[in-house]
Design a binder for these strands. Structure first.
Lengths: 342, 342
DNA sequence: CGGGGGCGTGAGAACGCTCTCACGGCCGTG
DNA sequence: CACGGCCGTGAGAGCGTTCTCACGCCCCCG
């Protein structure tokens, strides 16, 4: 009804230039905030732009600048469940917020299988994005290679499996896990089990290594029956806890490699009639929001997400700008947050 | 190490043409699968493309075709919690899977505040996407207007608040809720509460309307103290259930407008010492995976997501192709899934 | 044996922008 | 008063595609 022109004829730079009585170049300068424009010309262009409701054509611009001003956050996860992990939500939220001040756009790409991974590789290679933040990398993942080969600036969230020269930001998973289990030892527990993350993910591997290191440091042995592999989901945590309880009913503590899994473990323990922390102490990992809400509130290892997400984008932007040839990486400190579960 | 050329000089159509001994136009025809190319020329071009590892420049192509071959799934949600709702995960997964067979790319855009919404509007207007699927629309949402004005093909997931001419795909929320509450009535319950969705979302409004309609049809009155507004999260469901129990300890059933909220309600009921379904019967909505896992398994209303997601993309693609001027919408049937909670 | 109709091909314009370069006009300095 | 320098501006060349035409060629039919 309000639309008088049936097909909204999109105005071009030329039309703005004609209306403003200047050249195309001057309009371009105004649009791109170049300082070398007289106030009068600038004003004339401004009002012409407003009148025509001009919006620059991004494709034309990208064609010449070779930049798209969009970066991709790639979620590489076959397991749909994990998609709803609060850790991801936090990263997405954080990166999105960091980028909000810039004129960069953020797109989320998800890959659930190899076909979709290839598609993402193609998408990146086609120059749709200036850079990629890659999350949730598994050991057999082709995506790091695909993206590296595509020559796209890349920052991984979590260190890579091999020692490849790629930028990454990671929490000190090993150190955090070590602190977690050391805390359980210090509070008098001796039969300490662990629910690991997926062992095809570096966070899963590192947190298990930290747990074992803490046991070793205290002169305690590691027992296979006290280690159960989870999948970072609440349901997986519950299953793992049940399995653990079946294998060693006497266990008195458990380090769980993520808070959602710990919540699952908590309900499995409750169903089994164990009190937390009196019968079984529980320490989680992440310090997700759910850790404060569950019953009892979870003692857990906090990842400094507030530091990590800006770092993630910062390292990527630096790569995109091309300053500093060497890829740079960061490992962020974790800390123990004591609540009621241990 | 393996990279001999420091800066991977991206080959262009011209270079392929020269190597293949044909013109640019012929290469373009081969790339775009035009039939009017001789087998020999096609083969020459093919091998030249392979040798040069040629990839078409998407920006240049988009500039002339005015298509980007990417569509956006916009998640418009201030509440980070809701981001991890299994319903969203299913939609994302479904749309992504539907698009996997096409050469269309899917990007996810999230908006948590008005600034980010404006950014998405700009992104769309700039021609980054061929079309938009919009999810999680709230009553005061500027995004539908922004996108409509931007002239981008648009399909909404869920009907709009006003009767605007926009394509949408929705479940029969009202009908489903009516069936849910009717089921509670049929099984002998009389003091039936409801935990609604956010009432600034159409799904929340419609499900409440269905609930009330079922009560009215059975000659039962609606009481304000038997209605509590939730936010589609588990924590919100638990809070609402507690509030309901405080307001009317005698209630014998509750229709909960989403499964995550129902799970929260279940734990609130457990904490309050009520047995489900003996003391209080519970019916959820969504038939999310969690409905089968919780204790007791949830009787719920299934949305036909398997139908809805292909429909969503289909309607959008049809708009993009420009066939069929009139916007088309669909409302999908829901069904009662009986488990143990009611 | 001549003419019409494909079919495969190439030349070149167009898409909308950025950016280099050159050119006047003004100022300040010697 | 003359000259160098800077500042604002415009002309025009690209960026890498697609797509419209026009042009030979060969084949088939009369």
């Amino acid at each position: 009804m309000t639309d008088t022109t049936p097909r909204a004829a999109v105005p071009t730079l030329d039309e703005v230039a004609v209306l403003a009585g200047v050249s195309r170049a001057t309009v371009s300068r105004v649009v791109n905030d170049s300082p070398r424009v007289s106030p009068e010309a600038r004003e004339a262009v401004r009002s012409a732009i407003a009148e025509l409701r001009y919006v620059p054509n991004r494709m034309a611009r990208s064609l010449v600048t070779r930049r798209t001003d969009t970066i991709a956050l790639v979620l590489n996860e076959p397991n749909t469940q994990v998609f709803s992990d609060p850790f991801f939500a936090s990263i997405v939220r954080g990166v999105s917020a960091t980028l909000a001040d810039t004129d960069l756009n953020l797109v989320l790409l998800t890959a659930q299988d190899e076909r979709e991974q290839q598609k993402i590789g193609r998408y990146a290679r086609l120059g749709h994005v200036d850079g990629v933040i890659l999350m949730s990398v598994h050991s057999d993942d082709p995506l790091p290679d695909i993206l590296a080969e595509a020559g796209v600036p890349l920052v991984m969230c979590g260190r890579p499996f091999d020692d490849r020269a790629v930028a990454f930001v990671d929490a000190d998973n090993r150190g955090g896990a070590e602190v977690a289990t050391a805390h359980l030892i210090a509070t008098g527990h001796r039969r300490i089990a662990t629910i690991t993350g997926p062992l095809d993910m570096i966070a899963g591997v590192d947190r298990l290594a930290g747990h074992r290191a803490a046991l070793a440091a205290a002169g305690l042995r590691t027992f296979p029956e006290l280690e159960a592999e989870g999948d970072f989901t609440e349901a997986g945590g519950a299953r793992a806890m049940e399995s653990l309880l079946g294998r060693d009913p006497e266990l008195d503590a458990v380090f769980v490699a993520s808070d959602p899994m710990a919540v699952g473990a908590l309900s499995a323990l409750r169903r089994a009639g164990r009190r937390v922390p009196d019968d079984v102490a529980v320490v989680g990992f992440d310090d997700a929001a759910v850790a404060t809400r569950c019953d009892p509130p979870l003692t857990t290892i906090a990842q400094p997400l507030a530091d990590m997400t800006p770092l993630l984008t910062e390292l990527l932007l630096r790569q995109i700008e091309g300053v500093g040839e060497a890829v740079e990486s960061r490992v962020c400190r974790t800390s123990l947050v004591r609540r009621a579960s241990a």
